[in-house]
Simulated scan of single mutants.
Amino acid sequence: MRYLLIMCAALVASMAQAEPKAEFKRTLFPVGKYLVLNGTVYLTKGAENVSRPGQMGLLTGRRGLSGGLIQNGFANVTTLQNVTSSNGWVFEIDGKDLAKVSVGGTVSSGDAIETLDLAADGNISRNMNKNAAYKGILLYAADWVEVDRHIKRLWESDTARNYLINNDFRVVDSVLYATGYTGGGQLKVDGTANLDGSGGGAVGSVKVKTTANADKTYSISLADDSVIAFSARHLCWRDGQFAGTAPDVIGEKRPKSCPAYDD
């Protein structure tokens, strides 16, 4: 009986530590292709033009009757400098779902990690294992008060005002990167990601640890081509002035607490 209790406790512990899984969803409302992770819906269309949290640009796509429901892309405008990423977390995505959302088959890679396999060339378009579960990394902006300060300074300096007041303008808050790591070993992000300021090419790096060896730290280099999904925030306006940001929840209207620009 004692042995059974120990085994049950171990099973519960392993389930509690299990990495969440991102799943591809094609929905009718809202219409489009998305990734769902921990109950949150992330945009996949336009992810090829996103590289890091703090990027700013326009959601593009169809308009008219379906305009509020269908967003087909993201047009980058600028990247806020010195936006700090939080720790983020590691998730899994099945190869069959990764094949649907990865534009070029590019994945982030880095150090050899015990208990995990790694695609050697950083590109899995030709040899993607659709039966395998690939590791992914989600990073998000850590300090939205500071991000809002950056945007306010842009507004007050009269920089890119025509973009800022556009109802389709967004600031990226979360970014999902696919990696070439597969296998049963579990990873955990260790510390704040080191992101460069440009938001292009080699985005930066993130440190991870494994549950198998908590004393050793590994580095994964994040590539902009490995972004598979993202989420963004509205810009809010009051009395013709920038007043902060609010989450853009897929399938929901702009919150009343975040008015659009109305000069």
Results as ranks from 00 to 15, higher is better:
residue 219 S to L: 11
residue 13 A to V: 14
residue 45 K to T: 08
residue 89 W to T: 14
residue 25 K to T: 15
residue 8 C to V: 15
residue 79 T to M: 04
residue 141 A to R: 14
residue 262 D to H: 15
residue 74 F to W: 05
residue 150 H to F: 09
residue 148 D to K: 14
residue 63 R to K: 12
residue 71 Q to M: 11
residue 243 A to M: 06
residue 33 K to V: 04
residue 78 T to R: 10
residue 218 Y to K: 09
residue 54 G to A: 10
residue 118 L to V: 14
residue 56 M to T: 13
residue 45 K to V: 03
residue 199 G to T: 03
residue 142 A to L: 10
residue 206 V to Y: 01
residue 44 T to H: 01
residue 239 D to H: 11
residue 14 S to C: 07
residue 222 L to F: 05
residue 179 T to E: 00
residue 1 M to T: 13
residue 85 S to K: 12
residue 4 L to W: 10
residue 233 R to W: 03
residue 209 K to T: 04
residue 129 N to F: 05
residue 153 R to N: 14
residue 135 K to L: 07
residue 1 M to N: 10
residue 40 T to N: 13
residue 229 A to M: 03
residue 63 R to G: 13
residue 70 I to E: 14
residue 45 K to L: 08
residue 258 C to D: 08
residue 237 W to Y: 02
residue 155 W to R: 09
residue 26 R to P: 00
residue 141 A to C: 13
residue 185 G to L: 04
residue 197 G to Y: 02
residue 111 D to K: 06
residue 24 F to T: 05
residue 79 T to R: 05
residue 34 Y to T: 01
residue 254 R to F: 09
residue 63 R to C: 08
residue 194 N to K: 14
residue 168 D to A: 13
residue 193 A to S: 04
residue 47 A to H: 09
residue 104 G to R: 10
residue 237 W to M: 05
residue 255 P to I: 06
residue 141 A to I: 12
residue 97 D to Q: 01
residue 252 E to V: 00
residue 102 S to C: 09
residue 202 A to I: 11
residue 218 Y to G: 01
residue 91 F to Y: 12
residue 65 L to F: 15
residue 169 F to C: 12
residue 125 S to E: 09
residue 18 A to V: 00
residue 45 K to Y: 14
residue 97 D to C: 04
residue 69 L to E: 05
residue 194 N to H: 13
residue 137 I to V: 15
residue 107 V to Y: 00
residue 235 L to P: 08
residue 143 D to C: 01
residue 29 F to C: 10
residue 247 P to F: 00
residue 175 V to N: 07
residue 150 H to G: 01
residue 142 A to W: 03
residue 133 A to R: 14
residue 32 G to M: 03
residue 254 R to D: 02
residue 154 L to T: 12
residue 107 V to S: 00
residue 251 G to N: 00
residue 94 D to L: 13
residue 259 P to L: 10
residue 171 V to T: 03
residue 38 N to K: 15
residue 195 L to D: 02
residue 257 S to Q: 08
residue 223 A to W: 07
residue 98 L to H: 05
residue 74 F to D: 01
residue 58 L to N: 03
residue 32 G to C: 02
residue 43 L to W: 08
residue 263 D to P: 11
residue 5 L to C: 09
residue 46 G to K: 11
residue 90 V to C: 09
residue 220 I to N: 05
residue 158 D to F: 11
residue 195 L to Y: 08
residue 222 L to A: 04
residue 130 K to H: 09
residue 87 N to E: 12
residue 96 K to D: 12
residue 139 L to R: 07
residue 73 G to A: 04
residue 92 E to L: 15
residue 114 E to H: 01
residue 180 G to T: 09
residue 193 A to L: 04
residue 31 V to W: 06
residue 10 A to I: 15
residue 230 F to R: 02
residue 17 Q to E: 12
residue 147 V to M: 11
residue 151 I to E: 02
residue 217 T to R: 15
residue 191 G to A: 01
residue 109 S to Q: 04
residue 196 D to P: 00
residue 77 V to E: 01
residue 187 L to I: 03
residue 250 I to W: 07
residue 107 V to Q: 00
residue 57 G to H: 04
residue 51 S to C: 12
residue 78 T to L: 13
residue 152 K to H: 13
residue 102 S to G: 05
residue 259 P to S: 06
residue 158 D to Y: 13
